[in-house]
Amino acid sequence: MSKFKKKKDGGQPAISTASLPDIVFMLLFFFMVTTVMREVDLKVEVKRPVATEVNKLERKSLVSYIYIGAPKTKYADQFGTADRIQLNDAFATKNDIIQFVEAEREQTNPAEVPLMTFSMKVDKESEMGIVTDVKQELRKANALKINYSTYKSDKIEN
């Protein structure tokens, strides 16, 4: 008899949600620390190839990105489907690269300019022609440290 009584006046104790904010904040901080802000709005399709012998890019602030790939479908009727170069937020041609390199150098501490890396994020379906053009332009601009952005995998099938 007393068993039933107890249940009646006690009721289900509410689960305390006081620590929920703490948990969520912990998650939040985890994501803030482990991620980087998406710096550009990609207008070209970039599916990077995989490689096994990769290096990690250190010092993100010294890395500038050059994207190469076919324009995304929503830009296709304006820019076609041939591979294009994207610098910052806009489509560009290879003639803009020297200027881009200079602009990136302006933003960097002069002492660290020799450490700057230009990372090329190129779609794996792209042809080498455009990549070679970009490389030649980078050479002209004396930006010799480059990186072919790839995903890391342990094994690649041939």
């Binding site: 290096n55 990372s119 004396n142 480059i146 990186n147 952005s149």
Partner: peptide, 12 residues
């Protein structure tokens, strides 16, 4: 994470 093959281009 940014990974890739790092290369050095020959000078112009």
């Amino acid at each position: 994470v940014d990974t890739g093959l790092t290369r050095r281009l020959p000078p112009p």
